[in-house]
Design a protein around this nucleic acid. Structure first.
Lengths: 213, 213
DNA sequence: GTCTATAGCCCGATAGAC
DNA sequence: GTCTATCGGGCTATAGAC
C-alpha cells in the first residue's frame, strides 16, 4: 500500500506542474507546499524523473480509456461524442502539463515520446469513426474522402487551442478557455451538421463538465 | 557601426536557439561555438535577456512586413497569397524559436508578450481579407459569415502544425515539415476553391522557398 | 519514515588584467 | 575589445542523524 506521503507528493506535484510548468517547480517547492522536508521527497523518488514517470504512467492509462470510447451503433453517437469530449477535457485539466511541458522533460527517449505518435494516430482514427457514424446516422453531411483530414484538423485544434488562447491573450476575455476550445473545434464541422443534431449535441455537452457561456 | 563580434553573437545565438531551444543554449555554448570567451559575450550584452530582446526587435520588424502584405485588387490575389505564405515560412525558419520557446523566456511582461495578441489578431484579419478577395474574384466559394472562423483555424494550424508533427513523429516521415504545414492549412479550404485557381496557387507556391514533394 | 546538512553541477553575471 | 578568474544562486541528489 502506498504511503500517504507518497500519494500526497504525486498529487501535489501534478497540481503544481499544471499551474507553474514542470521546469519551474523544484522538488524543494513541492516539499514546502506539503510541509515536508525535501529529503523526504528523495526517500520516495530517487530522482525528479521518477516522479514524472509515475504521473506519466497514470496519464497513459487515462488516455487509453479515452481512446476506447467509440461509437457503438446501438447507442446515440452524439451522446458518446459528448462523453469522449468530456473525458478529454478532464484529461487536460489533470494532465495538461504533460502535453504542454514536453520541452522541459529533456531528451530521454522515454515512454511518453514513444507513445505519443500512436496516441495522436489513434485519436485521429477515433474522430474519423465518430464522424463516419454521424454520417451513417444522417446527422452530418461530409465527403468520406475528407474525413481523416477533418479529424486531423480537429486533433490539432483540440491539442493547441489552449496554447493559442494563452499566447493571443484571449484566455483572459472571460469564459472558460477549455469551453472555448470545444467551441473552436465545432467550427470545423458544425455547418455541415443537421441543425437539430447540432442542438442535441450541444445539449449533451452542456450536461457535462464543459460549461459554455 | 556594429562590431563583427557583436553581429556574430546575434547570428549564432539565433541559429543555436532555433536548433536547440533558448533555454538549452547557455551563453558559454554560444561563446564556444564562435570561439570567443564567454566574458566577451557579456561585454556586448549585459545579460542574456538583452541578447534575446535584440533578436525580438528584429523579429517584430519582420512580422510587420509580413502583415503588410495584403490583396490589392489590381494584382493577382493568388500570387500575393503565395508571397505572404513564403514570407511566413522564412519567418518560421529564422525566428521559429521565438514562437516555440516562449515558456523559456520567463514571466517578464515584455515587448513580445505585449505584441503577440495584436500580431495574431492582425494575422487573422489579413487571412480574412485574402479569402474575401478570393471570393470577390470568384476563386473561392465560402460563406462570408464563416470567414473569420476559417482564418482563425488557418492561423492555429500554421502556428502549431510544426509542433504537432514533431510530437506525433510525422516530421521524420520524409518531406519538408514546413511544406507539410502549408499543405495542412490548404486542407481547411481547398475543397471550396475553383479547381483551376487551386492549381495556379500551388504553382505559385512551388516557385517560392516552399518545396512540396 | 522523516529530518538536516551539504555536496556537486551548471548557469548567469561581475571584476579586473592585458 | 578580449581575456581569465571567480562569485552567487538555484537546482538535483546524497549521506547520515534521529
Amino acid at each position: 500500500m502506498a504511503s500517504k506521503t507518497r500519494t500526497k507528493i504525486v498529487k501535489t506535484a501534478k497540481k503544481m506542474f499544471n499551474e507553474r510548468r514542470y521546469g519551474n517547480v523544484s522538488t524543494l517547492a513541492i516539499a514546502r507546499e506539503i510541509e515536508i522536508s525535501e529529503g523526504n521527497v528523495w526517500y520516495y523518488f530517487n530522482n525528479k524523473r521518477d516522479l514524472l514517470d509515475e504521473i506519466t504512467t497514470e496519464f497513459l492509462e487515462v488516455v487509453d480509456r479515452r481512446l476506447a470510447i467509440l461509437p457503438t451503433g446501438s447507442d446515440d453517437v452524439l451522446q458518446q461524442y459528448a462523453k469522449m469530449l468530456a473525458t478529454l477535457v478532464e484529461e487536460f485539466r489533470n494532465y495538461g502539463f504533460i502535453y504542454r511541458d514536453q520541452a522541459d522533460f529533456g531528451e530521454h527517449a522515454d515512454e511518453l515520446q514513444l507513445r505519443l505518435p500512436k496516441i495522436y494516430a489513434d485519436g485521429i482514427e477515433q474522430g474519423r469513426a465518430f464522424y463516419q457514424a454521424m454520417i451513417d446516422a444522417d446527422l452530418l453531411d461530409w465527403p468520406e474522402e475528407r474525413l481523416v483530414t477533418l479529424s486531423t484538423n480537429v486533433t490539432i485544434i483540440l491539442r493547441y487551442d489552449l496554447e493559442f488562447q494563452r499566447e493571443s491573450g484571449t484566455d483572459k476575455q472571460g469564459g472558460d478557455p477549455i469551453a472555448n476550445t470545444i467551441e473552436q473545434h465545432f467550427s470545423l464541422f458544425e455547418h455541415a451538421m443537421r441543425p437539430d443534431a447540432l442542438v442535441r449535441l450541444k445539449e449533451y455537452i452542456s450536461q457535462t463538465n464543459i460549461h459554455v457561456q
